[in-house]
Design a protein around this nucleic acid. Sequence first.
DNA 1: GTGTAAATGACAACATGCTGCTTAATGTCT
DNA 2: AGACATTAAGCAGCATGTTGTCATTTACAC
Lengths: 147, 147
Amino acid sequence: MAHSPKRKLFLDLVLSLFRLNGLLVAEGDQMAEALGLTSARWKVIGVVALANSGVTVPGIARVLGQSRQAVQRITDVMEKDGLLRYQENPDHKRSVLVCLTDEGQNVYTALRAVQDPWAIENTEDVPVEELEIGLQLVRRLIHKFDR
Amino acid sequence: MAHSPKRKLFLDLVLSLFRLNGLLVAEGDQMAEALGLTSARWKVIGVVALANSGVTVPGIARVLGQSRQAVQRITDVMEKDGLLRYQENPDHKRSVLVCLTDEGQNVYTALRAVQDPWAIENTEDVPVEELEIGLQLVRRLIHKFDR
DNA sequence: GTGTAAATGACAACATGCTGCTTAATGTCT
DNA sequence: AGACATTAAGCAGCATGTTGTCATTTACAC
């Protein structure tokens, strides 16, 4: 395979990405645990919090690149737990808007207090250029596969 | 957060990694589908094929960074399907060795015929340096989280 | 307007992964 | 040899994510 050293490089990368994904989910679970969250809810609350106005369930799914059914189940539980609130959507009779409740806002704030130091700590000894190139590569691959 | 531009960079990277993971699993499912495999079985058969001698189930799990139960269920199905074979382990009375059957070897060969062009195609317009730095970053993060 | 395509919700079936528990085999230290 | 820790299997329960199907609502082209 001398004419394509990239091949093995790429396959190594893919295998490593699978592994890193598992570790990141575990990290998310650990960080969110103290707040009564899980990694899946961590992802969802992040999307809802960043959208200052409400977002629909399929909208969250599109941002996360997941199925709307998977997101729906998470939001249903979080609504029951009082973190999210469904609000009438003037633009759509059936598709309600998902918003943070006050409690949800508090939890998100607490989450940030854990998440931000985590992010800073884990990039302390990583050069900015490496992060930038890595993100560029990941985005490039996402764009390649997301059709 | 002016003193840590890395923070947002890193969080963006993590979110993108979640998404890329989902897309990669979908790619794996699509490639493996014609061979009657799934992405999970794709991962397992790859590990078994690379270990010319047999490997134990917990051994596969360690390579993939997954729980042994998750791997065990996959190997059980693949053994029933005739792709894998359990072989007595002289070093351990209970922990058998997992090997490829002839059919498993054929499937793996067919898999390579799909997987290698896929890898080459998806790196055509990506500079080698970007792949190398990306892999380095991913490995760095794995090492950071894998304790 | 009307008809068709796309988006959404609701429900079900299934694959993949995790943890916790108990029991058995293996390795190590004294 | 005996005690102890480690590693492994097997089983159960659960979280997360996927696909498929169907009915309803919305969007768009004609």
